[in-house]
Design a protein around this nucleic acid. Structure first.
Lengths: 258, 258
DNA sequence: CTGATCTGTCCGAATATTCCGGACGATCTC
DNA sequence: GAGATCGTCCGGAATATTCGGACAGATCAG
């Protein structure tokens, strides 16, 4: 189940934390049953994590503490630079009325790191921190196009090309065709490849320090169609992506090592 | 240094993660020197955390991964309900032009869990996830007023009343006076008690499930003054706090156990 | 180009730490 | 108020952690 790591104690601690997040809180006995670990052992873990300030204990129910918010905000801003990107997302959300995402590659997956909500936006299917397979979303396909070929090979080898809908890309050949088309045009389209009825448009943001990201606009198929979907929106997304890329490059440029 | 906990291995893992966050990334040898742990041991920790997906390794420099963003967003929304509060923060920020915070008590400290930025807002001195001593901020004083007396005793016993500026409350008597005044008025004021030149106004949000929070408006002393500071803003903050409280209560009310 | 000195990584034996059965109250249920 | 369930605590056995040392690669100075 758990990955083979040098320190199994640390792996167990995070297994417990992840279970608690997925279940929205848990008790000692619940964790005992779910993870098949004696309750005295579970107790050691949760008391440790509580004393360290990473869990709260409300009448026997343990839940993640806001300490993760500190770490998470750090990762979002200092690792993904989302605070620098968000004003541009808001602008694009105002212009288009839809949901705008800033997506960043990490560990071969796409992480939703920033968001702008337009006036007509549907209830989003993701939230900040959500991870998606790269090949199923517009932003991910833009990222896969920008990444070097051998890195794409690695990612496909590790994560495969899982099907989400009828339209999902599931073979390496299809992915390669898509990458070529996206490279030519400078933007990626998604038509229900992740979730039926949703369409999206995305353009990549690449930095010299190894960050691969994308700006994506997502909305319902009935609003994102025709020339607007295939020309107007891509231009807007590409404009924002370009602006963000230049902005980040100039702000962070001096610290790039190579 | 580290708290006395059943599992020292877990404590060390988080010590390393916290060091990495504070320093903005670190190498094996840096961690070896800073934490006084042999490099082979440090290596075990960072490889474990990397394999688990909580650290990234960019040419020997380890940094927090976006996995913390997933946990942090969960804590923010499912524990502090910030997603439900944020629209009201935005509204209040639009009305006042200043920075608006949603602050939540956890472990006797105040956590900045939500934010709205008005048109005239100064560069904020905090970000989402930042922790502050409750007695030094308006939101914290509003929370301390809402909390039962014995819990306030506990918090003061654990954290003390550290001085931040000349105006900071540093004695239990001053705190008690402040609590009485705030209880009477229904809102708390802060005049440079945390950071010189900053003023703030806050009103509490209390839920039956044990959540103690506050809505605070913060800005520079030259804009927040006179009747506006002492009457208009408090009314606006109290209005938003009340609205948020009712909204959360009706949304979450059915799940309250008592 | 070469030697010296940094890195990060890997290995295996000693031992300190985790693990877990069992016992204890407290709380809840019927 | 009896029975079941839960969280907490304890201490010995077993195991995972620890850390010195060795190695290879990178970096740097001369």
């Amino acid at each position: 189940m758990t990955a083979d790591v040098p320190l199994t104690t640390v792996a167990r601690a995070f297994e417990i934390l992840e279970y608690i997040r997925e279940e929205g809180g848990a008790s000692v006995s619940e964790l005992t049953d779910a993870l098949d670990v004696p309750k005295s052992t579970v107790h050691d873990y949760v008391t440790t994590l509580t004393r360290l300030g990473y869990l709260t204990n409300d009448g026997g129910k343990y839940d993640l503490s806001l300490a993760f918010l500190t770490h998470g905000t750090y990762a979002k801003n200092d690792v993904a630079y989302a605070d620098r990107v968000e004003p541009a997302l808001e602008e694009l959300a105002d212009e288009t009325g839809e949901i705008v995402w800033y997506i960043v590659e990490e560990g071969g997956r796409g992480v939703y790191a920033g968001r702008g909500i337009g006036r007509d936006a549907l209830q989003p299917y993701a939230s900040i921190g959500t991870r998606s397979a790269l090949h199923t979303i517009a932003g991910g396909k833009a990222i896969l196009t920008a990444l070097p070929d051998d890195r794409v090979d690695e990612i496909v080898a590790e994560h495969g090309l899982e099907r989400h809908t009828e339209r999902t890309i599931t073979t390496r050949e299809e992915l390669e065709e898509a990458r070529e088309r996206i490279a030519e045009r400078g933007y990626a389209l998604n038509d229900g490849e992740n979730i039926d009825g949703w369409r999206a448009v995305a353009s990549p943001v690449v930095l010299e320090n190894g960050l691969y990201g994308a700006i994506a606009v997502a909305g319902p198929r009935n609003r994102l169609r025709g020339e607007y979907f295939e020309e107007t929106l891509p231009e807007l997304a590409a404009g924002t992506a370009n602006e963000v890329q230049l902005r980040l490059r100039s702000e962070l440029g001096t610290t790039f090592s190579e």
